[in-house]
Amino acid sequence: MVEKIRLDGVTYAYGKTPVLQELSLGLQPSKFYGVVGPNGAGKSTLLKLMDGYLDPQQGVITLNDRPLQSYSLRELAQEVALIPQHSHYFPFTVEEMVLLGRTPFYTRLGQPSAKDVQLAQEAMQVTEVAHLAGRLVSDLSGGERQRVTLARAFAQHTKVLLLDEPTTHLDLEHQINTCQLLQKRAQEGVTCLAVLHDLNLVANFCDYVFVLGRGSLVKEGPPTDVFTPELIQKVFHVSVPSLLHPVTGRPVIVP
């Protein structure tokens, strides 16, 4: 099957501290990928590399079989959307903020087109922030802000969605909603990749998991194959029993 994004022997270091070492992996369209691993494993760095924010010191990253560096920033923004781990919230209205997701599609002095506005509206509806449209983002709760950020990335309407801990501030209902939305996007052909700390969300919703430990890939595969008690012990130093969900048959990770 065609690969949307491919990393080959990618190495990245901040100064002299290596973060990722000779990492190789491929992402296909129409799949929801989870990235898990302990703190400092290089998960966020992996996302920044895939979005071209950081350039690898060694190795090659390709998007649609074309080196990532050969894309202009604007071309790249039309292909890949990233939700970083930390966002800043200035007094934009929710609608203004979501419309910023359409920036790569209109010119410097231009205005968003009717299509841009419509895509922003749809994104606000599916993420359940449409009723907040006129409110200031800076006045919202942490969870609401996070959904606005998700709406912004959805409005960008790219073939690749990279999300760094998109569920951190969300209540249980919205954690599940977010994962279902990403699942749905994947079914529509988008390559979704999310860094998640909740292994049960990954086990439940992701099609495929990458487990990172200290800058290299420890294991990859469907959650059922990957989340074994041995692996959890090895990577997270927590011993868990081998449990499967009685209804879905997917692994359940509890100490």
Partner: peptide
Amino acid sequence: LLGEEAAHSLG
């Protein structure tokens, strides 16, 4: 204003 990484990802 969204932050450097977010701005980069928006081109």
